[in-house]
Amino acid sequence: MNALLHGRLTGLLALGAVIAILPAFLPNNFYLDIAILAGFNAVVCVGLNLLIGYAGQISLGHAGFFGIGAYASGVLVGTYGWPPVLALLAGAAFVGLMAFLVAKPILRLKGHYLAMATLGIGIIVSIVLRTESGLTGGPDGMMVEPFRIFGVELYGEKVWYWVVGVLLLGVVWLSLNLIDSPMGRALRAVHGSEVAAEVVGVDTARFKVLVFVLSAVFASVAGSLFAHYAGLITPAKADFFKSIELVTMVVFGGMASTFGAVVGAVVLTLLPQALTVFQDYQQIVLGGILMATMVFMPKGLLPTLAALIPARRRA
């Protein structure tokens, strides 16, 4: 048990160390901004990875939950004057409830039908956000007030970097704990074979619902904080492409690997920014990288790299 804790701690410490020393290498606020965006994506991906990697369920609609969180904060704080913390909690509670309500019927679905259903939910959310322009500002989005807590205003990249860093560490810690708990083992059983898990007495349905709700809440919280940080939110943050992007990050980094999800989020947040030098070839390169990674490393970046480096060395 002690050793297990130790192992988990090493990963966390490593992540913490990377987060701590990273700003020293970033020349200006723009890079910090990218790091913050990567952090937000990583938070959502860690949650989504629980669902995809461990519970074996696909969701093509998680950006919807992110969007609801973001707009809950934007609207409740901006239009109705709520304190930001309250708005964040309200958004998370709403998303949690919504996820709970849809989870039961939806998680009954298998494979592509589940993909379709979650995709539908995500798209409907983004269309509502786009259309109810009286509330949400329509397709061009809305401005969001800065985050205030105990009279302190969180403002600027330097402050937010640490906020996101701490949030990410917390989420990763939570996720690692969950995976190592008895429930986590049950979850892995679900991914292996649902029917088999049920036969040996694992209540798979309950676990799936729980993980679905948890990952949705992670997304909502990230969405709320993102809204305050960015100061501008658009329905694009909730749409199909964002959902796909999130799933891609998880799978790209490595399914069933919490740190893989983090790495996937970081790499795929950086990639489009780095690819602006390719100008017109941007999409080709991005699409090509996605295809190539998945074809040649179907397990994802991190697990494949972890297996590759020592193997080379031995040879």
Partner: peptide, 13 residues
Amino acid sequence: IIITIGASIFLRG
């Protein structure tokens, strides 16, 4: 799914 999505982005490019 991600491979085919990658293919679609590539083709659009």
